[in-house]
């Protein structure tokens, strides 16, 4: 059973605001989904471990500098930012 308090906590962690309506339907949906996920909780999995699909190891890079991107490209998706920075105004009315 998933409670409203659970959802509020999850929404806070996920940085989401939910309306009352959304909250109610989330409680219902999550209860269903978790019920469905619970199917696996009874299964005995023994010591089977999983790390990564192809068992790859040590994908490492040499410590060699490559030129960074131009600042105007870095800031391209925020209209150039402000004074070279990403910028967040204190509040916006």
């Amino acid at each position: 059973m998933v409670t409203k308090e659970d959802i509020i906590k999850l929404a806070k962690l996920g940085k989401l605001y939910l309306t009352e309506e959304e909250l109610d339907s989330a409680v219902k949906d999550m209860t269903n989904i978790i019920g469905f996920a619970n199917e696996i909780s009874k299964v005995d999995t023994g010591d089977t471990e999983f790390d990564n699909i192809n068992g790859l190891e040590n994908a490492l890079r040499e410590d060699i500098v490559e030129e960074s991107f131009d600042e105007d490209l870095i800031l391209k998706n925020v209209d150039g930012g402000k004074d070279g920075f990403f910028y967040i105004k204190k509040y916006q009315n």
Binding site: V65, S68, F69, L75, D83
Partner: peptide, 20 residues
């Protein structure tokens, strides 16, 4: 270089110039 990309780690520098 940085831990996950090849940008330099030098201290300081103009903002957002050691970025990719």
């Amino acid at each position: 270089t940085k831990i996950f990309c090849s940008c330099r780690t030098d201290f300081g520098g103009e903002p957002n110039t050691h970025c990719c």
